[in-house]
Write a protein that binds this DNA or RNA. Structure first.
Length: 478
RNA sequence: CGGGGCGUAGCGCAGCUUGGUUAGCGCGCGUGUUUUGGGAACACGAGGUCGCGAGUUCAAAUCUCGCCGCCCCGACCA
């Protein structure tokens, strides 16, 4: 591994790609816009997967799998949907050397094929709700790609549910948005703003879209998860109907919601620094790394068994721990490498520590001497898990403080323009597309969402001055 | 698709302007010795279809034309 990364202050986007590659999260694939998720990055994704999956199960959802290929005609059944996705479809026209009767779309999302199946499975109100999630890969032919943030192929989960009433569908939409918020804040240590998307930003085919928006280290916004109330749009397009309690045929109300490998990019950009990644302990593939230190063979014979003993102890205490006993690297080199890879806690064991029956704990989130403490061996199985909890909270608190510092409540358009230069602007908005567009053209800031949690009261639209009943977050976004 | 940059060893680059023996350098890699509390040192060694294709020439990494690919910045998007 080469030394160092481009500093954030010098070139943030180069810093980002440097970190992703040097921390060995991912690498460029031979096909443009595609990436290889390396074992370390995939281990992080697996932890994201598990944390989300257990939450889905706890809220009554089941996993299933639907096919990669979707008949082209399915996409065309929902007018807005096909319009939104056509420009970025990958289409298969030849199979087994023969031209296909009907082209197959490589799924960009699965509402259509799942809607088709739901139409066959759902007959009665007794069949509802249907609560299914799938973990899958999808393909969107994006013009400009960035590792994890926007790749041609990406991994995600997509939940698809069908309900008896509009109210139930809306409840589900918000429930899953809150699940995403809980995951982002408590697992990824990323503070997010849950909110509603404006009409121009909503999912193609949805009645209403909701999002969790997060602020990255360069103060730009990243949509980190979405939950859509699809109304009866897809139910009507795919004839998803049921007989209600009065024996009358009704269309279902459906939802869909997703979180993707983009979340990895969010974690990199929210917590990372010029030393590299900083992973939240709850998701980190390696929570603590033990670095043994010895000058002579004699010392090594004392230090290594001590390190191995600590390793076993921590493993027994449920810590994801790694012992880095490689002899070809110096301790200093290892310190830098594990910092680059974002391991939350480093444990140093050298001759001095063996003599004192203690070890040095060094926190990734606090650089240098300040982040170091000496801990007796006997207390490690308590102190290490404690430190991980502390670090998890510290990362969240720091990210929240950063977001607050760069979130402004402009009173007028001049202040608004300054605000979006610095970060988020939370401003009164009349709800007009015209104002959104004008703001975008003028400042490059887009309407990220109308937060569910409002300040209250009413005001005047920050752009046009008309009456406004809600505030929206505006920011430059990824 | 518009703008910019780049393709020479695994990575980062020099060489190209002004064509000329066997294409260099740093890092990394292999072996050995000494090292190890913040990115160790020395010695020896392995590693190249100079992006691809045509052309000019006695001679092309170098000049000409064409093509391909990648990265960054914008419009589109999770």
């Amino acid at each position: 591994m080469a030394e160092g990364v481009t500093p954030q202050s010098e070139d943030y986007s180069r810093w980002y790609t440097d970190v992703v590659q040097k921390a060995e999260l991912a690498d460029y694939a031979p096909v443009k816009g595609c990436m290889v998720i390396r074992p370390y990055g995939y281990a992080l994704w697996e932890n994201i997967h598990d944390a989300l999956d257990s939450r889905f199960k706890a809220t009554g959802h089941e996993n299933a799998y639907f096919p990669l290929f979707i008949p082209m005609s399915f996409l065309q059944k929902e007018a807005e949907h096909v319009e939104g996705f056509s420009p970025e479809l990958a289409v298969v026209t030849i199979g087994g050397g023969e031209k296909l009767e009907e082209p197959l779309v490589v799924r960009p999302t699965s509402e259509t094929v799942i809607g088709h199946m739901y139409a066959q499975w759902i007959k009665s109100y007794r069949d509802l709700p249907v609560l299914i999630n799938q973990w899958a890969n999808v393909v969107r032919w994006e013009m400009r790609t960035r590792l994890f943030l926007r790749t041609t192929e990406f991994l995600w989960q997509e939940g698809h549910t069908a309900h008896e009433t509009a109210e139930e569908a809306q409840e589900e939409t918000i429930r899953m948005l809150r699940v995403y918020q809980d995951f982002a804040e408590n697992e990824a240590a990323i503070p997010v703003i849950p909110g509603r998307k404006s009409a121009s930003e909503k999912f193609a085919g949805a009645a209403t879209s909701y999002t969790i928006e997060a602020m990255m280290g360069d103060r730009r916004a990243l949509q980190s998860g979405t939950s859509h109330n699809l109304g009866q749009n897809f139910a009507k397009a795919f004839e998803i109907r049921y007989l209600d309690r009065n024996n009358e045929l009704q269309y279902c109300w459906t939802t869909s919601w997703g979180v993707s490998t983009r979340m990895v990019g969010a974690i990199v950009m929210v917590h990372g620094d010029d030393k590299g990644l900083a992973l939240p302990p709850r998701l980190a593939p390696i929570q603590a790394v033990i670095v043994p230190i010895s000058k002579t063979d004699e010392e090594r014979e004392q230090v290594l068994p001590a390190a191995e003993d600590i390793f076993k102890r921590l493993q027994a205490a449920g810590v994801r721990v790694k012992l880095d006993a490689r002899t070809e690297f110096t301790p200093g080199w290892k310190f830098n490498e594990w910092e680059m890879r974002g391991v939350p806690l480093r444990i140093e064991v050298g001759p001095r520590d063996v003599a004192n029956q203690s070890a040095v704990l060094a926190r990734r989130d606090i650089p240098g001497r300040e982040g170091k403490t000496f801990v007796p061996w006997a207390e490690l199985d308590i102190k290490v898990p404690e430190a991980l909890v502390t670090i998890q909270k510290a990362l969240f608190d720091r990210a929240l403080a950063f977001r607050e510092e760069h979130t402004h409540r402009p009173e007028n358009y001049e202040q608004f323009k300054e605000a979006v230069e610095d970060g988020f602007a939370l401003a009164w908005w009349c709800g007009d597309l015209a104002c959104e567009d004008a703001i975008k053209t003028d400042t490059k800031a887009t309407n990220r969402c109308i937060p569910l949690e409002q300040d209250g009261g009413t005001g005047k639209c920050v752009y046009c001055g008309k009456d406004a009943s809600e505030k929206a977050i505006f920011a430059r976004a990824y």
